[in-house]
Amino acid sequence: MIRKIHTKRGILVVTDRDRTIWVLSDGKAGDENQCLGVAERLGGTIDVRLVAPGRPWVWAMPWGPIPPQDRPDKEGSPLSPPFPDVAIASGRRTVAYLRKLKEISPETTTVFLKDPRTKSLNADLIWVPIHDKHRGSNVLATLTAPHRLSPARLNEARTGGPSELHRLAAPRVALVLGGDTAKSAFGTRAAHRLADHLVRHLPANMSIMVTPSRRTPAHLMKAVKQALLPRPHWIWDGSGTNPYATMLALADAIIVTADSHSMLSDVMATNAPIYIFEPDGYPPKLKGTIDQLVTHPYVQRLEDTLETGSRAPIDSTELIADEIRDLLKTT
């Protein structure tokens, strides 16, 4: 895309390559990756600016000001100029910084991902998942979350990863495991229910690729390992780089646990059939999201035998990037 900026000397043509993008991050991997996913899809030179407000300033986030030492004119400030064309932020500690940036650089298009928990944020665009109640004229709500699994990255990942994954016979099933959440434990009964389904309902010709998360409890891994003993499988053991993208790219079908909106969003970006396993307890806000997801072809709860096929991906990252592009056209 080419953007034209009117100046006193004429028209300055700005291409994606020329665009500068800041990602304001407090270091939380999940928030930062969502910002990077949007930034990468938008295209441009990306600069990750870390914010780390100390006490007492952090106590006032997201409502209070940035610390005096982080003002743009201070050495080492995360807001030091030159200011970007676009700034994307997520996380409670970044709200004040994005607000300040918009005050000192009104021409910067500012974007915040997820509910900022304050009405004082002057961002040009706020994205929230559809299960969030935050709404407004500058709010975009989508069914899935932004991520870094672009079509190009999935295509590249298809030939990467451990050789063991490629030696598994097709059809391959990716099993994406979550686990305990802040308010719900992935109990032993749910673990045994998932393991029993793998034993009883998984077609004998299917190979399994398993990627656990940091939240996956030991009893769940034990149950899954036991269930997969009779069939070809490969389980990431936590060493080296997680071949998550490769598993999703190679998968002819995907089983994902229902406890993470990010995981649900990742798998929906593929074109493989999706089977959602609901543990006994998981965030209630996701139940409505799953009810909407299963209205799409080849997306269903894990209840019967798996089938392979192809479906249209659901990818909100591109929707958010398109919204930003529209905002840039008006600047």
Rank of each mutant, 00 (worst) to 15 (best):
E75G: 13
P82K: 15
S80Y: 08
V38C: 00
I88R: 02
W63T: 04
D47G: 03
T94R: 04
P68V: 09
S25G: 10
Y97C: 04
S25P: 05
A60F: 14
P53V: 00
A52R: 13
F83W: 14
F83V: 15
P56W: 03
L24F: 07
K74H: 14
A89N: 00
Q34P: 02
V38W: 01
P65M: 10
P84G: 13
G30W: 00
K100A: 07
G91T: 06
A39I: 02
W63H: 11
R41G: 12
G37D: 11
G27P: 09
R19E: 06
D70P: 01
D47F: 11
L98R: 02
L98E: 09
G76W: 02
G37C: 12
P56S: 12
A39M: 03
K100C: 11
P78W: 07
V48H: 00
V58M: 11
Y97A: 14
K74G: 05
L101F: 08
L79G: 04
P84F: 05
G44H: 14
K74F: 15
V86W: 05
S77P: 06
P84M: 13
M61P: 04
K28V: 05
G54D: 11
R19H: 04
K102D: 10
L50Q: 13
G27C: 15
Q69Y: 07
F83Q: 14
V23Y: 09
R55D: 13
P67M: 03
R93Y: 08
G76T: 10
R41D: 08
R55C: 15
I104L: 13
T45W: 15
A96M: 06
F83C: 10
S105N: 11
F83H: 12
L24W: 01
Q69R: 09
K100M: 08
E103D: 08
D26N: 06
D70H: 12
R41M: 07
P67A: 09
P78G: 03
W59M: 06
G64P: 02
L50S: 12
G27I: 10
E103C: 04
R99P: 01
R92K: 12
E32W: 14
T45R: 08
P84R: 01
R71G: 08
D73P: 10
K28S: 04
G91K: 00
W57T: 01
M61S: 12
S77R: 13
I46R: 11
R49L: 12
V51Y: 01
T45S: 13
W22M: 01
Y97R: 03
D26E: 14
P78D: 00
G27V: 09
R92M: 11
L98W: 01
P62N: 02
T94C: 06
V23I: 15
K74P: 00
P56A: 14
I88F: 13
R93L: 13
D70S: 00
V51L: 03
K100R: 09
R19C: 11
T45K: 07
A89S: 13
T94P: 00
E32F: 06
S105C: 14
Q34V: 03
G30N: 14
P62I: 02
A87M: 10
E40V: 12
